[in-house]
Simulated scan of single mutants.
Amino acid sequence: MPNEHPHSRLQLANRTAAWLLGGYLAALALIAFWPSPVDRPASGQLNGLLAALQRHGFPVWVDYSFVEGLANVLLFIPMGLLAAWLLPRGKWWQAIVVGLVASNLIEMGQLLFLGGRVASVHDIMVNTLGTIIGAGAVAAHRYNAELNKWVRTALGSFHDR
Protein backbone atom coordinates (compact mmCIF):
# COMPACT_ATOMS: atom_id res chain seq x y z
CA MET A 1 0.00 0.00 0.00
CA PRO A 2 2.94 2.44 0.04
CA ASN A 3 2.19 3.49 -3.56
CA GLU A 4 -1.53 3.80 -2.88
CA HIS A 5 -2.99 7.27 -3.34
CA PRO A 6 -4.18 8.93 -0.09
CA HIS A 7 -7.54 9.71 -1.71
CA SER A 8 -8.24 6.01 -2.36
CA ARG A 9 -7.31 5.19 1.27
CA LEU A 10 -9.83 7.81 2.42
CA GLN A 11 -12.50 6.31 0.14
CA LEU A 12 -11.80 2.87 1.58
CA ALA A 13 -11.98 4.26 5.13
CA ASN A 14 -15.29 5.98 4.34
CA ARG A 15 -16.76 2.82 2.79
CA THR A 16 -15.63 0.81 5.79
CA ALA A 17 -17.12 3.38 8.18
CA ALA A 18 -20.41 3.32 6.26
CA TRP A 19 -20.59 -0.49 6.49
CA LEU A 20 -19.69 -0.40 10.17
CA LEU A 21 -22.36 2.25 10.79
CA GLY A 22 -24.95 0.10 9.03
CA GLY A 23 -24.04 -2.94 11.12
CA TYR A 24 -23.97 -0.84 14.28
CA LEU A 25 -27.43 0.60 13.55
CA ALA A 26 -28.83 -2.90 12.94
CA ALA A 27 -27.41 -4.10 16.28
CA LEU A 28 -28.66 -0.95 18.02
CA ALA A 29 -32.16 -1.51 16.64
CA LEU A 30 -32.15 -5.09 17.95
CA ILE A 31 -31.04 -3.94 21.40
CA ALA A 32 -33.38 -0.94 21.53
CA PHE A 33 -36.50 -2.70 20.26
CA TRP A 34 -36.08 -6.09 21.93
CA PRO A 35 -39.40 -6.74 23.70
CA SER A 36 -37.79 -6.86 27.15
CA PRO A 37 -34.68 -5.08 28.46
CA VAL A 38 -31.62 -6.93 27.17
CA ASP A 39 -29.95 -6.66 30.58
CA ARG A 40 -32.83 -8.33 32.45
CA PRO A 41 -31.29 -11.85 32.43
CA ALA A 42 -28.07 -10.55 34.01
CA SER A 43 -29.57 -7.98 36.39
CA GLY A 44 -29.56 -10.30 39.41
CA GLN A 45 -25.93 -11.30 38.93
CA LEU A 46 -24.88 -7.70 38.34
CA ASN A 47 -26.68 -6.48 41.46
CA GLY A 48 -25.03 -9.30 43.45
CA LEU A 49 -21.60 -8.42 42.07
CA LEU A 50 -22.07 -4.72 42.83
CA ALA A 51 -23.24 -5.51 46.39
CA ALA A 52 -20.18 -7.72 46.95
CA LEU A 53 -17.86 -5.04 45.59
CA GLN A 54 -19.48 -2.40 47.77
CA ARG A 55 -18.99 -4.58 50.86
CA HIS A 56 -15.27 -4.50 50.02
CA GLY A 57 -15.06 -0.72 49.69
CA PHE A 58 -16.38 -0.10 46.18
CA PRO A 59 -18.24 3.25 46.03
CA VAL A 60 -21.96 2.88 46.75
CA TRP A 61 -22.85 5.31 43.99
CA VAL A 62 -21.66 2.70 41.48
CA ASP A 63 -25.00 0.94 41.49
CA TYR A 64 -27.14 -0.77 38.86
CA SER A 65 -28.49 2.56 37.60
CA PHE A 66 -24.97 3.93 37.20
CA VAL A 67 -23.78 0.84 35.30
CA GLU A 68 -26.86 0.96 33.06
CA GLY A 69 -26.23 4.64 32.27
CA LEU A 70 -22.54 3.96 31.57
CA ALA A 71 -23.53 1.11 29.25
CA ASN A 72 -25.80 3.50 27.33
CA VAL A 73 -22.97 6.03 27.01
CA LEU A 74 -20.65 3.31 25.69
CA LEU A 75 -23.37 2.02 23.35
CA PHE A 76 -23.69 5.40 21.62
CA ILE A 77 -19.99 6.30 21.27
CA PRO A 78 -19.74 4.36 17.97
CA MET A 79 -22.65 6.36 16.57
CA GLY A 80 -20.80 9.59 17.24
CA LEU A 81 -17.51 8.21 15.89
CA LEU A 82 -18.90 6.76 12.68
CA ALA A 83 -21.41 9.49 11.89
CA ALA A 84 -18.86 12.25 12.48
CA TRP A 85 -16.29 10.40 10.38
CA LEU A 86 -18.70 10.23 7.45
CA LEU A 87 -19.66 13.90 7.68
CA PRO A 88 -17.55 16.59 6.00
CA ARG A 89 -14.91 18.34 8.06
CA GLY A 90 -16.42 21.05 10.21
CA LYS A 91 -19.80 19.30 10.29
CA TRP A 92 -18.94 16.81 13.07
CA TRP A 93 -21.49 18.45 15.36
CA GLN A 94 -24.28 17.18 13.11
CA ALA A 95 -23.43 13.66 14.34
CA ILE A 96 -24.58 14.82 17.78
CA VAL A 97 -27.91 15.87 16.30
CA VAL A 98 -28.18 12.45 14.62
CA GLY A 99 -27.53 10.74 17.98
CA LEU A 100 -30.05 12.94 19.77
CA VAL A 101 -32.73 12.29 17.15
CA ALA A 102 -31.99 8.54 17.08
CA SER A 103 -32.19 8.35 20.86
CA ASN A 104 -35.49 10.24 20.89
CA LEU A 105 -36.90 7.91 18.23
CA ILE A 106 -35.79 4.86 20.22
CA GLU A 107 -37.36 6.12 23.43
CA MET A 108 -40.55 7.12 21.60
CA GLY A 109 -40.73 3.69 19.98
CA GLN A 110 -40.28 2.00 23.34
CA LEU A 111 -42.98 4.20 24.89
CA LEU A 112 -45.52 3.61 22.12
CA PHE A 113 -44.87 0.02 21.09
CA LEU A 114 -43.03 -1.89 23.82
CA GLY A 115 -44.96 -2.33 27.04
CA GLY A 116 -42.09 -4.23 28.64
CA ARG A 117 -39.66 -1.34 28.13
CA VAL A 118 -39.42 1.96 29.96
CA ALA A 119 -38.80 5.13 27.94
CA SER A 120 -36.72 7.69 29.81
CA VAL A 121 -35.31 11.18 29.41
CA HIS A 122 -32.24 9.95 31.31
CA ASP A 123 -31.56 7.44 28.52
CA ILE A 124 -31.80 10.23 25.93
CA MET A 125 -29.28 12.27 27.93
CA VAL A 126 -26.72 9.49 28.41
CA ASN A 127 -27.14 8.24 24.83
CA THR A 128 -26.49 11.75 23.56
CA LEU A 129 -23.46 12.03 25.86
CA GLY A 130 -22.05 8.90 24.21
CA THR A 131 -22.63 10.43 20.79
CA ILE A 132 -20.91 13.66 21.92
CA ILE A 133 -17.87 11.69 23.11
CA GLY A 134 -17.63 9.79 19.81
CA ALA A 135 -18.12 12.84 17.60
CA GLY A 136 -15.77 14.86 19.79
CA ALA A 137 -13.05 12.25 19.37
CA VAL A 138 -13.33 12.54 15.58
CA ALA A 139 -13.32 16.34 15.76
CA ALA A 140 -10.25 16.31 18.03
CA HIS A 141 -8.46 13.86 15.73
CA ARG A 142 -9.18 16.00 12.68
CA TYR A 143 -8.18 19.20 14.47
CA ASN A 144 -4.93 17.58 15.59
CA ALA A 145 -4.20 16.37 12.05
CA GLU A 146 -4.85 19.85 10.63
CA LEU A 147 -2.74 21.49 13.33
CA ASN A 148 0.14 19.08 12.65
CA LYS A 149 -0.11 19.82 8.93
CA TRP A 150 -0.09 23.56 9.61
CA VAL A 151 2.92 23.26 11.95
CA ARG A 152 4.85 21.13 9.41
CA THR A 153 4.08 23.68 6.68
CA ALA A 154 5.08 26.60 8.90
CA LEU A 155 8.29 24.90 10.03
CA GLY A 156 9.07 23.87 6.47
CA SER A 157 8.72 27.44 5.22
CA PHE A 158 10.79 28.67 8.16
CA HIS A 159 13.44 26.05 7.43
CA ASP A 160 13.55 27.03 3.73
CA ARG A 161 14.58 30.63 4.52
Rank of each mutant, 00 (worst) to 15 (best):
M1A: 11
P2D: 08
P2F: 05
N3D: 11
N3E: 09
N3F: 03
E4T: 13
H5R: 10
H7N: 10
H7L: 15
R9N: 10
L10G: 03
L12Q: 15
L12K: 15
A13W: 05
A13S: 14
N14C: 13
R15C: 07
T16Y: 08
A17G: 04
A17S: 11
A17M: 05
W19V: 09
L20Q: 03
G22D: 01
Y24P: 00
Y24R: 01
Y24K: 00
L25I: 11
L25E: 02
A26P: 00
A27V: 14
L28Y: 04
L28E: 02
A29H: 05
A32T: 11
A32M: 07
F33P: 00
P37T: 11
P37A: 11
V38Y: 08
R40I: 03
P41H: 10
A42K: 04
S43A: 15
S43K: 12
G44P: 06
Q45S: 12
N47K: 14
L49N: 06
L49R: 03
L50V: 07
A52T: 13
L53M: 13
H56A: 14
H56P: 07
G57M: 09
G57C: 10
F58A: 15
F58S: 08
W61R: 11
V62D: 06
V62F: 12
S65M: 10
V67R: 08
E68N: 11
L70M: 15
A71W: 04
A71L: 10
P78W: 04
A84V: 07
A84M: 03
A84H: 04
L87V: 01
P88S: 08
P88Y: 07
P88N: 09
K91H: 13
K91S: 13
W92N: 05
W92D: 09
A95Q: 05
A95H: 02
A95R: 02
I96R: 00
I96S: 00
I96A: 06
V97I: 15
V97C: 03
G99R: 02
G99F: 02
L100A: 14
A102Q: 06
N104M: 14
I106F: 01
G109K: 03
G109F: 02
G109M: 08
F113P: 00
L114W: 06
R117T: 04
R117L: 03
R117A: 07
R117V: 07
V118I: 13
A119N: 12
A119L: 08
S120N: 06
V121P: 00
V121C: 01
H122V: 11
D123Y: 04
V126I: 15
N127Q: 04
N127V: 03
T128Y: 06
L129S: 10
L129I: 14
L129Q: 05
G130V: 09
T131Q: 06
I132V: 15
I132G: 01
I133A: 13
G134Q: 03
A135T: 09
A135V: 08
G136D: 11
A137I: 12
A139G: 09
A140Y: 12
A140G: 15
R142S: 05
N144E: 10
A145Y: 08
A145H: 13
E146L: 12
K149I: 13
K149L: 15
V151Q: 08
R152I: 13
T153C: 04
A154W: 10
G156F: 04
G156I: 12
G156K: 02
S157P: 01
H159W: 13
D160L: 02
